[in-house]
Design a protein around this nucleic acid. Structure first.
Lengths: 115, 115
DNA sequence: ATGATATTTCGACATTACTGGAAATAACAA
DNA sequence: TTGTTATTTCCAGTAATGTCGAAATATCAT
């Protein structure tokens, strides 16, 4: 993950509506949510939502798949892990990688490692 | 750390010059760097640098102290840890806090915990 | 084909952010 | 004091971002 990716990911998450969208999709897990469901949940105009979904997609933080008429969006946990990794390593004075118990981000039941 | 703080921290770090400044200050550790030193290191016009330093300060990510004629800026590691904590908990599907070995962010020699 | 539903793209506007020169402020030295 | 250095504030211009109505696209059902 290079600096450009980091910047676009941070920019994506630094906008309130997009942060809300992303958190909603994290909660939703691998199942995801349709654009319409997101719009309903957050009370955003369709065109505005689409603008933000596009931004998050280009930032690599979410992924789109089609299910009949609906477009379903899901959070990309790998990407979020990569972002957290970058921040921990490059913005925290850690010489190498952080001794976490494997990925910080996971859809739901992340085994609580070691201790 | 509430959502507003998170948003302003993310916004601060999502700008290239500011990310560079912050990384420089993380490297510099508790000693910090003067505004002039930062300007020299990054090749930014004084007024522009001041604008970004102000932004980072308001976001709570850096802290200012005066040393004679110079203003010395240092990274606020606690704040960065809080940000990472929020992202891990709220944007990663973790139910509670992440089982890291205590703070992710530390100035320099962070003991490599447990294993 | 026609119509209904789901979502995006287009276009225009309003707002906010970034940049840097010039003037102002702060601290020190002679 | 007067001058010098370090930094900020002010200002104006330019660029980027966010918003949303209206039109376009895609999918499915009849």
């Amino acid at each position: 993950m290079d600096k450009k990716d980091v910047l676009s990911s941070l920019a994506a998450l630094s906008q309130e509506t997009r942060l809300d969208i992303f958190r909603l999709l994290v909660q939703a897990g691998p199942e995801g949510r349709s654009a319409g469901a997101i719009a309903d949940a957050l009370g955003v105009a369709p065109a505005t939502l689409s603008f933000h979904l596009s931004n998050l997609t280009h930032a690599g933080l979410i992924v789109q798949r089609r299910a009949s008429r609906s477009l379903i969006y899901t959070a990309d946990f790998d990407r979020m892990n990569a972002l957290l990794g970058f921040l921990a390593e490059n913005c925290c004075g850690r010489p190498t990688s952080v001794p976490t118990c494997e990925p910080v981000c996971a859809p739901s039941s992340a085994a609580s490692c070691g201790k």
